[in-house]
Design a protein around this nucleic acid. Structure first.
Length: 795
DNA sequence: CTTGACCGGGG
DNA sequence: GTGTACGGTCAAG
């Protein structure tokens, strides 16, 4: 039969590897009892290693027997050499690391390798199985209660046929928790929309449940009844599932959410945990947003509303935490609460429809199950891809660096990054942006930069870098350039294919996601080479890549200047230029640059902007990475104005954005008026307290903090007044007029009777406004108007 | 300038 | 579970 695998695990006693897969008939369980765990021992001397293993008995620290069930000599590539290694097979996956420790102590063993690859991943790699790709299975079919059937695998291999995509049943959910009790749960899929509530609410999508216990039971029934393949949520790993588990413990309910009836379990993943539901895909959108999508998201925060607003264009419908609590307690307008809760699942579902296909595409390329591909960081994703591709090329995977090695790598002098042009502060009209198509990946391909081409001893065609005392051999294509070239070329083909398709069609979306996943991976290689935790760490490769990137962008700038362009700004892989008749002349410029570039590299036209604004540092020198652009449709692109991102009051953030917009609309006078009006409003006490609130989350009881941050001091004072301040609460505070320091003046909003207008003027509004307006010659005093005394700012 | 604490998302 | 993996920002030193 043909099937697509989407989940994998193993069980011991006796050892079986279990896959869960789906085709058009349904969901199947596949069981392979033949596959055995193994690792490699690289010998100092093969014969004496064989002697050492002959009749040897290995024991774990606890005295348990560690069996070697089989050994085999294999020839593998390790770095630039070919070596003979001994494959050591054992009976239980958990014995692999233990046995590895025993063997590594032998004098006949130089090192052990590939002892830390999780067993189910090892299986998928060795069998060539990738989720999202069809595989062929032969075996004995048995009936099963939970699945279409269960198959005892005899043969399993990648399938050449089977191009059509599968549909997955996706469902999003969200919980509402008040006073540590789950009071609502909302669900949304293509054909199902429901809110469970423990309080009576008369709305068509609401199902009223008796209590929290019944809510849990219904939760499980809904997931089962709707035959969910993909369950999504936002921060469900760290919030919703921990809440669910606690509730389940309280009521002694088994959270049997797995298709096989198995309990939800948490997987430890470093500082994170992942809620794992067997034979379904629980894909938390938040880790993927932070790990993978964040660099491409402009929003200052990565909360559900902001991310959905940016990715889907949905506007938010804010209900603050205190409002929610109040509604729940007073039972006044519970409908509003219910609609809000339902909307969260709706938004998550829509966001999931955008994001889960990207996760599945990453699984298709890397071969990781979606549970993993959705939660790993860039580096880990790249590494898992490398491990698989290395295996396919008969290469041994390098070992992970020890903690000491990592910190040694971290302590090394940082190498130089991208080239950033220092702009002249001011407002520029009609700027054009050009950028290099995948600069670092293409540099790596163009110059064959790779850990395995670095300083090859007997190399005929060696590329020497004048700046550094190392070289890259050009005789054979290296591991990294080969992978990058495959990804970049394949992506290029897909992009061509995309142009032929109707935007918004399913086919278009599929291909878009595929090329997006390839882009993500191709771009991660450079960073990976310079990441201290990388198995294939190569500082030289990373350093050479940025060095060559700088050379190419500087060459392009030189060409532009020779051709009469005015250089406005440039950062790493892009340049902003100005010139009369630019639209007519730019092809000539592009041709000139592209003929200078090696094959595979390309400078492209990115777009026009009506105006660009650049500011300067304290020293008066133009500020790098801090600018704002407005396009011809009036769209703003603000970069680097850090005030927009931090814990600043809404009034400061809003003022800055309005000022930037006015400036970009070439209306500096109105920009100044905005600041003056804001200051005036602060002075006369007209400003709404909402505009002054600063939010921060307390992660522990306030008295346990060593420092005196404003939010901590405000919380301490509130506690003295008798407030219950628990860890994990977000406090909002205002800087009032009473107190000695800023921290001393901080009060929780509800206790604030007045506000310190001077603080908000001098420390919030003026600094962010001045960042922009000083460029036009304004001083702080001018913005403040002189001599006026601040009022009391009473609420 | 360096070091170490803190934070993210969720309600 | 072939376990124990972040990265940016800020205040204090």
């Amino acid at each position: 039969m043909q099937i697509q695998v989407f989940d994998a695990e193993y069980k011991t006693g006796p050892l079986k590897l279990i896959l869960y897969g789906k085709n058009r008939e349904g969901v199947y369980k596949l069981v392979d009892t033949e596959f055995r765990p193994y690792f490699y021992a690289m010998p100092t001397d093969l014969e004496s290693l064989k002697d050492d293993l002959e009749g040897a008995n290995f024991e774990s620290d606890k005295g348990k027997k560690l069996n070697i069930t089989d050994t085999e000599i294999e020839e593998k590539k390790y770095g630039q050499e070919t070596v003979k290694v001994l494959k050591i097979e054992t009976d239980i996956p958990a014995n692999v690391p233990k046995l590895k420790n025993e063997l590594w102590d032998l004098e006949s063993v130089r090192r052990c390798l590939e002892f830390d690859i999780p067993f189910y991943r090892r299986y998928l790699i060795d069998k060539g199985i990738r989720p999202g790709k069809w595989i062929e299975v032969e075996g004995k079919e048995q009936s099963s209660d939970s699945f279409e059937s269960e198959i005892i695998v005899e043969e399993i291999r990648p399938s050449i046929e089977g191009k059509n995509d599968l549909d997955w049943n996706s469902m999003a959910f969200d919980l509402e928790v008040i006073d540590d009790r789950i009071v609502m749960a909302s669900f949304r899929s293509e054909g199902f929309r429901r809110l469970l509530s423990v309080k009576d609410i008369d709305l068509d999508f609401v199902e009223v449940v008796e209590d929290e216990r019944e809510l849990l039971e219904r939760f499980i029934e809904i997931v089962e009844g709707e035959n969910v393949d993909i369950l999504t949520g936002y921060n469900t790993d760290e919030y919703d599932f921990p809440e669910l588990r606690e509730a389940a413990n309280r009521h002694n309910v088994e959270l049997s959410l797995g298709r096989n009836g198995e309990r939800m379990k948490f997987n430890r993943r470093g500082r994170f945990k992942g809620a794992r539901i067997k034979a379904r895909m629980h894909l938390d959108l938040y880790p993927f947003v932070t790990h993978i999508l964040a660099p491409g998201i402009d929003s200052e925060t990565l909360d559900l509303d902001s991310v959905a607003e940016e990715m889907l264009g949905l506007n938010k419908d804010d209900l603050s935490w205190s409002e929610m609590k109040e509604i729940w307690e007073t039972e006044d307008d519970l409908e509003k609460f219910a609609k809000y809760a339902m909307k969260d699942a709706d938004i998550t579902f829509k966001l999931g429809n955008e994001i889960t296909p990207q996760m599945l595409e990453l699984s298709r390329i890397t071969g990781l199950i979606p549970f993993d591909s959705s939660r790993l960081t860039y580096g880990q994703l790249t590494e898992n891809y490398l491990i698989r591709e290395a295996y396919n090329r008969g290469m041994l995977t390098r070992n992970r660096p020890s903690q000491q090695k990592r910190s040694k790598r971290d302590r090394e002098q940082a190498y130089q990054g991208g080239f950033v042009y220092t702009p002249e502060e001011g407002l520029y009209e009609d700027v054009a942006v050009f950028d290099f198509r995948s600069l670092y990946p293409t540099v790596m391909v163009a110059h064959n930069i790779s850990p395995d081409t670095l300083n090859v001893e007997s190399c005929e065609d060696s590329f020497e870098l004048d700046e550094f005392d190392y070289s890259f051999c050009q005789d054979e294509q290296g591991f990294f350039p080969e992978l990058v070239e495959d990804l970049v070329s394949s992506r290029y083909e897909l992009k061509k294919e995309m142009k032929e398709l109707e935007q918004g069609s399913q086919k278009y979306k599929n291909i878009y996601n595929r090329q997006q996943a390839q882009k993500i991976l191709a771009n991660s290689f450079y960073g990976y080479l310079g990441y201290s935790g990388a198995r294939w760490y190569s500082r030289e490769s990373a350093e050479a890549t940025t060095y060559l990137g700088r050379e190419y962008i500087q060459d392009s700038i030189e060409i532009a200047e020779e051709m009469g362009y005015e250089m406005v700004y440039g950062d790493t892989d892009s340049v902003m230029l100005r010139k009369e008749n630019l639209r007519e002349d730019m092809d000539e410029f592009l041709d000139e640059v592209n003929s200078m570039l090696p094959e595979f590299m390309e400078l492209e036209f990115e777009g026009f902007f009506k105006r660009g604004f650049f500011t300067s540092k304290e020293s008066g020198e133009g500020a790098k990475k801090k600018y704002a652009l407005i396009d011809e449709e009036g769209g703003l692109k603000i970069t680097g104005f850090e005030q927009v991102r931090r814990d600043w009051s809404p009034i400061a953030k809003k003022t800055q954005e309005e000022v930037l917009r006015k400036v970009l609309e070439d209306n500096v006078d109105e920009a100044v008026e905005i600041v003056e009006d804001t200051i005036e409003a602060l002075r006369t006490g007209e400003v709404d307290v909402e505009e002054l609130k600063i939010y921060t989350t307390l992660t522990k009881p306030p008295e346990e903090y060593g420092n005196t941050a404003p939010h901590v001091e405000a919380a301490k004072k509130a506690k003295k007044r008798g407030d219950k301040i628990e860890p994990e609460t977000t406090v909002d505070y205002v800087i009032t007029r009473s107190g000695k320091s800023i921290s001393g003046q901080a009060e929780l909003t509800k206790y604030a009777e007045n506000y310190d207008a001077d603080y908000y003027i001098d420390n919030q509004v003026i600094p962010v406004a001045m960042r922009v307006l000083k460029v036009f010659g304004y001083t702080e005093d001018q913005l403040k108007g002189k001599g006026k005394q601040s009022g009391l700012g009473q609420f």
